[in-house]
Write a protein that binds this DNA or RNA. Structure first.
Lengths: 382, 382
DNA sequence: TCCACTTAAGCAACGCTGTTGCCAAAGTGC
DNA sequence: GCACTTTGGCAACAGCGTTGCTTAAGTGGA
């Protein structure tokens, strides 16, 4: 048995056959059921939002009900005829494990199908102590997590840690201060150790994926900026997490915003990360926020971003100065974009919900997302 | 009849049925035929690259041949059995018109299915003279273009002009120096005038789409930087043109790379465009190239870009200084990314092929691309 | 109280997709 | 000249969403 059996639709074989068609539509319906949340959706509403015929939706939902993934949940009020039956996702039908491996701490969550964490554990971690110790800790914590919950059907494990790494192969490229991790196949090691399929991704990507699920409307683009010991970003473009060809996208910290600026650890000058962290160290929070804000404005401008979300320890320690400073830069940018009919309000900035658990939640979402279709369509509340 | 009948797969109705399945696979095969070029591909190779069975490929290619889009073209040398029959795209089976409406000039091309221009026309244009004059010129030039060629089956017209505009509605947002164009529905106006389906997009997006077709391997990401009277970019991410939710992506010129730098026309300070154009005006080409290069490096870093292509009048006027300056910045960036196994060579920079006709060629590609599937899979040369 | 109407959802037959099993065609090489 | 390999078509098939029709379950006016 291969150690990585998670569904990977379409990536390798772009040709589509009947099973692929069925899988696509099933995932689509599941995604709408999930987006509907506790309120549920009727079959006809699903038909309207997918473009499928009501009969097709009936067949698909019948399969989902027989598999225990969906259930009927009462009826709507009549609108002049037979009242619609409401369908709902069964959150506990499957679960996924999300692991956040930070430099000094491990966070593990068990998430249900809605992405909600039904159990959580934290443990200190010494990443530079090497693979064996880390894997032992992971095994122990995940075992405890699964024992606590009655969770049937664990689909797999999502692992998130600081980059750089390769999402497609599941291999770490470089870990600051721990050269022996170079090239370590973390995904397969975790999968073998736990006996579960695994996915590996950068912490910022996982967080962005998790935040995308929590957003009110599904499509659109947003950027998640994570300021902790370093500065990185997760990009969701047109409703899809963008990783880049080598999982290298989102390297936001070394964007240069000041030609001939102060030298950065990376060797270049004027990187946002250097400006930000130096300002924070010097107690100049407005200055740090301004540098972050200029970077955010560049991001918004370049990628036509809808919203900016901030997270990471440093931001969480001083939320107001950062939110205010970034908002100020985005407002300044918006003022310059007026002119014709294209004038629009400043892009909003907010604190990423989920706080310190955002990355672990997102790691679970790495496993869950494929079930619900890559691109989640918007379900407008009628 | 609506004035815009171009195929728009999947955007509105994400649900897939049998016609959608068929269309998807047909486009996939057509895309591979196109990528194979004059050499052609055998049915079994198509099967291997799509993941479809050879029999399915036979059925699909039989349809394509009966529609005149594909043809048999000789045989391969035998490898120990029956020699494979080579299939080839029939370039002249369909055509598309590409229009580049620049501020002072119109370029029109008639492209065959491979994207090659089989006819071309140029005419002076006064964009600020208003819609009626522009449409009249367009009608005259397109008529002349179609009369010269014996091109049957014109699929539609792709229109490219400077932004900002909305690709989905085909409406111009703002034209510098010509406020009466604000909100003008250019796409529908062109479609009605010519009696052909039309698509509208930004000049940089069209150019990037056209350049994507011309690239050796289909997937991956690249950025096209266009420096003319302004500075803009076209982004192809994971083999797909990224437009952003409001066709606003690629606004590269007002990326800030120098905090508190010289004031830009847009009102902010330190924009790349301001730095670049001021340097060019002052005869400081290395300085202009350096500003452009820093912006390119930021782009590469943020989006994990494979290649940078340069175009536009100003670059075409002084190719060497710009290529050299940008290459220098990308090399400086690559040096700082060493460390572990993730070390990789500097991202390459090159002049965009096609020169002054790149945008018009890309405009035709706006029409052609949907036929060949959005995401073109790589066809490795065995 | 009844009946016409509306809306929701299932049953059965159907068309069309890619798949499977089999066979003919057309080469190579001993 | 024969065994073998490789290519590609023919025919029957399974399974997808669709269509046409029927049943279920309400509302609302006469």
């Amino acid at each position: 048995m291969s150690s990585n059996d998670l569904p990977s639709l379409g990536a390798g074989s772009p040709g589509a056959n009947l099973p692929a068609l069925r899988g696509h539509n099933t995932a689509l319906v599941l995604g709408l059921l999930r987006a509907a949340g506790g309120e549920g959706v009727s079959r006809l509403e699903l038909a309207a939002h997918t473009g499928l015929t009501p009969q097709a939706v009936s067949k698909i939902t019948a399969r989902l009900r027989s598999e225990g993934l969906a259930a009927e949940a009462g009826r709507r009020a009549s609108t002049g005829g037979k009242p619609a039956t409401v369908l709902r996702l069964v959150p506990g039908a499957r679960h996924a494990v999300g692991l956040h491996l930070d430099r000094d701490e491990l966070t593990a969550v068990l998430a249900d199908l809605t992405g909600r964490a039904v159990a959580e554990r934290r443990a200190p971690l010494a990443f530079e102590a090497g693979a064996e110790q880390v894997l032992t800790t992971v095994e122990r914590e995940v075992a405890a997590l699964l024992a606590a919950a009655d969770g049937p059907g664990v689909l797999g494990v999502g692992v998130a840690c600081p980059g750089p790494l390769d999402h497609t192969t599941g291999v770490l490229h470089r870990v600051t201060g721990a050269p022996r991790w170079d090239g370590f196949p973390l995904r397969d090691a975790v999968a073998a150790r736990l006996g579960l399929p695994a996915v590996l991704d950068k912490d910022t990507n996982a967080a962005a994926l998790g935040l995308d699920r929590a957003r009110p409307d599904g499509t659109g683009s947003f950027g998640y900026l994570h300021l902790g010991t370093g500065l990185g970003a997760g990009l969701v473009l047109d409703g899809t997490l963008y990783r880049g060809p080598r999982t290298g996208a989102g390297e936001f910290g070394h964007q240069i915003v000041q030609l001939d600026g102060p030298r950065c650890d990376c060797g270049r000058q004027g990187c946002i990360e250097a400006l930000c962290l130096a300002a924070v160290a010097g107690g100049d929070l407005p200055g740090a926020a301004r540098a972050l804000g200029v970077g955010a404005a560049n991001l918004v401008e370049l990628l036509d971003i809808d919203q900016v979300l901030l997270g990471g320890r440093t931001v969480l320690a001083y939320p107001e100065p950062f939110l205010g400073g970034v908002a100020r830069e985005l407002a300044a940018q918006a003022r310059t974009r007026g002119g014709g009919s294209g004038a629009r309000p400043a892009v909003s900035v907010a604190l990423a919900p989920g706080g310190a658990r955002a990355v672990a939640d997102g790691a679970a979402e790495l496993v869950l997302a494929p079930l619900f279709g890559a691109r989640r369509p918007a379900l407008r509340p009628r």
